[in-house]
Design a protein around this nucleic acid. Sequence first.
DNA 1: GCGAATTCTGCTCATATGAGCATTCATTTC
DNA 2: GAAATGAATGCTCATATGAGCAGAATTCGC
Lengths: 327, 327
Amino acid sequence: MSAQDKPNRGARAHHPGPEELVQTAAMARRFYLEGKSKIEIAEEFGLSRFKVARTLEAAVRDGLVRLEVRLPAELDDELSDALRTRYGLSHSIVFRCRPEDADDPAQVTRRLGSVTAGLLAEIVMDDDILGLIWGPEIEALGPELTTLARCSVVQLCGVTPLRPVDANAVEAVRRAASVARGPVYPVYAPLLLPDAATAGMLRRQPGIVEAVSRFDRITKAVITVGAWGPGLSTVYDALSAAEREEYRLRGACAEVSGHLLDAEGRDVAPELTERILAISLDELSETPEVILLADGVVRSEATAAALRTGLFNGLVTDTGVAERLLA
Amino acid sequence: MSAQDKPNRGARAHHPGPEELVQTAAMARRFYLEGKSKIEIAEEFGLSRFKVARTLEAAVRDGLVRLEVRLPAELDDELSDALRTRYGLSHSIVFRCRPEDADDPAQVTRRLGSVTAGLLAEIVMDDDILGLIWGPEIEALGPELTTLARCSVVQLCGVTPLRPVDANAVEAVRRAASVARGPVYPVYAPLLLPDAATAGMLRRQPGIVEAVSRFDRITKAVITVGAWGPGLSTVYDALSAAEREEYRLRGACAEVSGHLLDAEGRDVAPELTERILAISLDELSETPEVILLADGVVRSEATAAALRTGLFNGLVTDTGVAERLLA
DNA sequence: GCGAATTCTGCTCATATGAGCATTCATTTC
DNA sequence: GAAATGAATGCTCATATGAGCAGAATTCGC
């Protein structure tokens, strides 16, 4: 009884017969696969070029022609693109993990390191001053670096003396410099110091001042983000229980280069700045390229907070984080 | 202008980094999936439209973008197209059989009927005079016919009284006419008669003359082809052993509308013409559209012979036959 | 180092293509 | 039967695109 039951309206659903299907497919092959022009096709089939255009349009719409964009499987171009647009990034890379690795944070971090190494090989140019923060992600980056333009490498923060693996912080920096055949400026000092005076003194130490003095000339920085919880942030782990609670109350949910941010990306602990040995947020904001590495959904909110600072123009992350960032 | 940020061209090794991959994918998506123009994409990514064009070109070449043409699975557009070009046909439809059906001739024939029904629904127009030959293929066609323009339906040959199923010959014609809401002209007589006189007499019989007199006005004919062997041709089965051998010696390898053809498509038994009740080859050659139905590789050579007559401008067949026709 | 070969880039200009419109044709609706 | 509706077709004209070329940059070979 409805209007659509009328035989003619069925023409909208238009059930194409085999002849039409075959001809449409032939035209599609000519156009998409053989690269013929629509005008040539029109001549071959005795149609107007407009008819050809409309037929091909319909063929794509009806799925007769499938246009598929697929990256080498380990990268998710769709999420990358969405993030890039959403957060106005210049670089946005979302990598995929095989299902069996998705639950193994170490595996995910390794993948992150590998992808980041590729990115650096691509975007670092001769005479760049490359700054690397510390973090498990940077540790994973080190061994993956195999190609890099001639550049200097500067360590952007001190190490946390709590874990033996921290040697890798410096190791990654050295490795990068070695690959880059350029000078290296490591920081052999703790990240968090008891007071501003000590920090200030260390900043002037030979061997450290060489790195620190370059913080305002970094051209490309690679930064990680920590979440406000045990094992998720070097600063968190280094603070006393009272301090942790204090900053929690102030809304700290992310740690970037030793600075604590709330969900809006505001620095909630400016006074800490004097006690840490790391590139400042101001210096970062002067750095032309700042890449944020973030893996693991546990760091999703922290990553969102970090992005809100507007400091970052690049992001490398996994699909899990990417999906939360877009939700 | 943007000469300052030229990426490190270590890309000579053909090894694009993740950034390039992701950006290329994003551009490909814009162009192929979102329908943006290359100029728009160039603006968005800050590139020249030429760069965009070259990047997309490379993306297609390297398989990053897959352009796939695929028919609803039961039709083979590639073979169809190849046959169409090779034999200069206006209609060429090659259907695929599921592997489990490929060895069951009855199934293949059923598929042929179904596809042909679709083709007829497409190409038959009001006031056409549709001619149907007899054959198992036509039997299979009958039940599949569901849509047809208003046209007359003429049976193009007599039946072979050897098998009870032959009733279906007339049945298919009736069914077609019923779907077409038009007049029907069946032939209630045998295909092969003992002599020319009997045949001539029958041709003038009321009820038969109505059909026969229309043989020279058919606008669209559907013809099957038989091979020269037992069970593969109605004429073969109706002849005596001596006659069979005689015609075999003359090179008969195909039977079309009761006429015997050699491998070159020549009529090797003109004298039979007077003894059969079927549309003549001359009349067929005057018919604007003649569709040949051929299924089963056993009929491959016969089909090739039939096509060599130049009588046919349409072909419906299965992948097996199509491949042999192209070999 | 210094040319030579190669690649990459953006340009011009001819061609291909798309958006929108007018016409035709078929069908519906009163 | 006449008017209205709607789909299909082909046109004009502005825009998008490709082929081929010249200059710039890069790499190569000595």
